[in-house]
Design a protein around this nucleic acid. Structure first.
Length: 636
DNA sequence: GGGCCCGCAGGG
DNA sequence: CCCTGCGGGCCC
């Protein structure tokens, strides 16, 4: 890292040192990472104009960051990039190509070499060595986002890079970046898991020890849904949400652990994802199926949902600013509304959140894919992101002018967040700087010590005071009937299962081959995604017969996971090679383990293999599991 | 993609 | 009992 006194300009061209908009004439750009810096605020600005063109920022010059560089290899990479950049005989395109080859992007020559390297026993370790580094900051990818051209960057680096470019292009290959992705990059959670697995495997741990994300399907949708005719007709829209699978009361605080999950004996894990709010409710992470806050004004708030319902929300992942409820005109039988028409007050759910703030209670947080403005939202469905604490709350004038209640949430969970490539949970972190606090009124902070806090001895977050006693009866129980008990798969089956769960193509339901990352951050096999649109591809380019045809064609090219328009992406989709390399390496490791197991267990012959496959299969939802089953007897 | 409108759960 | 609500399917 650079010295604290040396900071670049942010995405808006604002100098992070003097907090002023840096004049263009005062801005110099690093030749390695292309970040703009405010020259007048640098401790050691370049002396002559000649130096400006060849200038390296404090982050890239290596002088002020001795420990941060992972390996000599990466350092050499910087040297090579510099050599390419300063070669006057090359055009920009050629430079891009060279750099691309160097960084292991597409480019024929590099591929064989890479493959050979991964084959030669270095395995995932080799990949970590130089393939997993963001080519902007040269550090291990953190909060990775993937471009349609198949390249990966840290979220922050990507935003920095895109922010200071007129024409949005990839930092490696200069291919255009779709405006939507430039505006709202979303973290590629499959890449996150790939990095975590690679790290584990590098440090000698089995991937099997990793807690993986789940996508819960609708297997046992409810006992008492669809009570009216209209509700039956329109499917889930008006259905009640059905049976609760966990044995917690509605006012239960904190993480949902294995003892409250008799069906699976797992508890609700960070990263677990459900199709919608109804399903999320069934697993107890957040009970209200419309409201964003679960809580009681005289007791506290247990959970919140971030779904983009309030434009004042600001999401930075590990912390975020949440807006209270109310202040809207819901006349005309509406459930939500965009426009505010009066001030919010600290009453009802808003007061419940304030109680949780004062007491330092743990608050469960779920994020919905509907939150479009956040990079941390899941690509689909509703995801449990773990425990946060409300460090402060206040009121201020909202974007629409009326007062809103505001809450500063800071993450404090023992499991890593779904966006970090780190394998560890949170450590206490200093409170973030919140500029709007200057205009805050009615500010409340925690009084006394928090109920949920970090225990230095145990090295984890835990209740420091007894949790508030429930005043409600537990959920309707009868949970045992819902999920079948399953036996624990064998060691390799377990690893295999995790690889499949994390890297499954949602079209062929197998581990991805030649993975593509769409601009909407979904991952599929190249062949599967292209196959899904076979015969329809590229018509858009050829025909110029009129808008109707064009529109009709466009409508068909939708992402199978989220209906995002993929027609541009599909014209030239590029494999995410970094992702591919890890998947292949992990699979190879798994195969090697399996072969070893087979050698060790000579006596248990052929049925061993088939059993293992069954165990794996049983945990992957079959396609028709999603079908909603209406229980006739329950409707009467 | 935006507006409409509904059932439903839970707070008070 | 009434009020509220960061859903969700459908229709355009």
């Amino acid at each position: 890292m650079a010295e604290p006194s040396d900071l670049p300009c942010d995405a808006d061209g604002m100098c992070m040192v003097c907090k002023q908009k840096a004049l263009e004439s005062d801005t110099i750009t690093c030749k390695t990472c292309v970040t703009p810096w405010h020259a007048t605020c640098l401790t050691a600005p370049p002396k002559a104009l000649v130096d400006v063109a060849q200038w390296d920022c404090p982050d890239c010059s290596g002088v002020s960051q001795p420990a941060a560089k992972p390996a000599a290899d990466a350092g050499g990479l910087v040297e090579k990039i510099r050599a390419i950049e300063s070669d006057a005989s090359l055009t920009d395109q050629e430079k891009a190509k060279r750099r691309q080859q160097l960084l292991g992007g597409a480019g024929g020559g590099g591929t064989d070499e890479q493959k050979q390297r991964t084959n030669e026993g270095g395995g995932v370790l080799e990949i970590l060595g130089d393939k997993f580094n963001c080519s902007i900051c040269m550090q291990l990818l953190e909060r990775p986002v993937s471009t349609p051209c198949g390249h990966n960057f840290c979220l922050k680096c990507f935003q920095k890079w895109v922010g200071q470019q007129q024409k949005k292009t990839c930092a490696i290959c200069r291919k255009a970046i779709p405006p939507k992705m430039a505006m709202e990059p979303r973290i590629n959670s499959v890449m996150v898991m790939a990095i975590r697995m690679a790290k584990l495997s590098q440090s000698g741990f089995s991937v099997g020890t990793l807690k993986v994300h789940h996508f819960i399907h609708n297997q046992d949708r409810p006992d008492k849904a669809f009570t009216t005719e209209r509700a039956q007709k329109s499917g889930k829209a008006n259905a009640c949400s059905g049976k609760i699978f966990v044995t917690i009361p509605l006012d239960f605080f904190g993480p949902i652990t294995a003892e409250n999950d008799p069906g699976r004996n797992l508890g609700v894990m960070v990263g677990e994802t459900w199709e919608d709010r109804m399903e999320c409710r069934q697993w107890g992470a957040h009970f209200p199926h419309v409201a964003g806050i679960s809580g009681q004004s005289d007791h506290g708030a247990q959970s919140v949902a971030l779904s983009g319902g309030y434009e004042d929300d600001e999401d930075c992942g590990d912390w975020f600013l949440y807006t209270g409820s109310g202040g809207r005109d819901l006349s005309g039988n509406k459930r939500t509304a965009k426009n505010q028409s009066f001030d919010q007050k600290f009453t009802k759910q808003n007061e419940a959140l304030r109680v949780s703030c004062r007491e330092g209670y743990p608050v469960r947080v779920v994020r919905s894919h509907k939150e479009k403005r956040s990079s941390y939202a899941p690509q689909a469905g509703v995801r449990y992101d773990g425990i946060y604490r409300i460090e402060k709350c206040w009121r201020k004038a909202g974007i629409q002018g009326f007062k809103v209640c505001r809450y500063l949430f800071v993450r404090c969970d023992n499991e890593p967040a779904p966006w970090t490539s780190d394998n560890q949970g949170d450590r206490p972190r200093p409170p973030p700087n919140v500029p709007e606090l200057k205009h805050a009124t009615d500010t409340t902070e925690r009084k006394g010590s928090p109920a949920w806090d970090y225990d230095e001895e145990k090295g984890q977050w835990t209740w420091k005071k007894p949790p508030p006693e429930s005043r409600r009866t537990p959920g309707d129980g009868d949970v045992g009937k819902i999920s079948k008990k399953r036996k624990l798969p064998s060691r390799n089956g377990y690893v295999k299962e995790k690889l499949l769960k994390e890297f499954m193509c949602l079209i062929c339901r197998k581990v991805m081959v030649l993975p593509l990352t769409t601009p909407c951050a979904h991952n599929f096999c190249k062949a599967c995604l292209e196959g899904a649109f076979a015969g329809q591809s590229f018509v858009k380019q050829r025909t110029c017969e009129g808008r109707r045809t064009l529109r009709a064609q466009k409508n068909v090219m939708k992402c199978p996971s989220c209906t995002n328009d993929l027609s541009d992406f599909l014209q030239n989709p590029q494999v995410n090679r970094e992702l591919m390399n890890v998947i292949e390496s992990l699979q190879k490791e798994e195969e090697a383990l399996e072969a070893k197991d087979a050698e060790e267990v000579v006596d248990s012959e052929s049925d061993d293999e088939s059993n293992r496959d069954k165990a794996t299969e049983g945990n992957i939802p079959a396609e028709n599991d999603e079908k909603v089953v209406v229980d006739d007897s329950a409707a009467h």
